[in-house]
Design a protein around this nucleic acid. Structure first.
Lengths: 148, 148
DNA sequence: ATACCAGATAAGAACCATTCTTGTCAAGCG
DNA sequence: CGCTTGACAAGAATGGTTCTTATCTGGTAT
């Protein structure tokens, strides 16, 4: 007469597609976007749809096995490492690097009664490779770049 | 034979629409979205288009008179105060409050050669009003909320 | 075993903030 | 005055993400 728990508390159900997506994420330090993950997944499962990628990513986010990074204004990026580290993104090529926060920022002016749940720290800059390129080319080419 | 500077170095050209938008922004601590600004602007100029709002906002961003805030994942928010303060957003109602950073975070692991240009610090939480509401209602209602 | 059911998948439509395009207009300058 | 530049309006286009609908599948209860 129970409500048929059936699957143990609706845990993450493993499927071949999901396993491959997990494999693509495991230890991945490149902070891939949904599109990149979809491309990679399609190599093994040519028929896999974008919805499957988004659904799986959402499930992983729900169970806390994945972090969504919003440092890239034009699309979400994902990080299998979920400790609350900071990120540094190259404004030119979009590469994202990890940073560990050894000392959290001290803030003032926090409205009373605001319950803080999470903190994001993001840095924007120019990566070594792009910095080198900028040394050669004129800067005029890099100005209006908004999306990749 | 000069390149006809015409207007003094392409400065920000004032128009009634722009003046009204500036008025809407001046001292505005609510971090409005483009849509909110458009609504407000339409009260005085019913025919004003979204493109005008975006164009003007972009111009203001270009000349550094406005800051774009990305703490709200679903839309850009704007802040007439451009010093690099931090923000705190209520995950329930979307309200954004200001915070001043009295001590910048210390980070390690920064890749060599990365030239840092800018830093964002964002906090997410629950504002006093929503915290009170959550005390009454069940939490089940607030789970899937993604966009307003 | 077999029917059932929750969840997974595929395909594509829908959504929506933002950007782009096109044409028109106004203002400053020569 | 005509030219040039930039503002404006209207709407189309873009593109990442979400939603919908219709199967499919694998574990569970009977």
């Amino acid at each position: 007469m129970k409500k048929t728990p059936a699957r143990p508390s609706a845990a993450f159900r493993m499927t071949p597609q999901r396993a491959e997506l997990l494999r693509a994420l495991e230890g991945n330090k490149s902070h891939p976007s949904a599109e990149q993950l979809h491309r990679r997944l399609r190599k093994k499962f040519p028929g896999v749809s974008f919805a499957t990628v988004y659904n799986t990513l959402q499930s992983l986010l729900d169970i806390g096995e994945l972090a969504e990074i919003r440092i890239d204004r034009s699309r979400a990026r994902f990080d299998p490492c979920t400790d609350g580290h900071a990120h540094l993104m190259c404004a030119e090529c979009g590469a994202i690097a990890d940073l560990s926060v050894s000392r959290p920022p001290a803030v003032s002016g926090a409205p009373r009664g605001f319950k803080v749940l999470r903190c994001n720290i993001e840095f924007y800059g120019v990566c070594p490779a792009c910095g080198k390129k900028a040394g050669n080319k004129e800067k005029t080419l890099c100005q209006k770049k908004k999306r990749k």
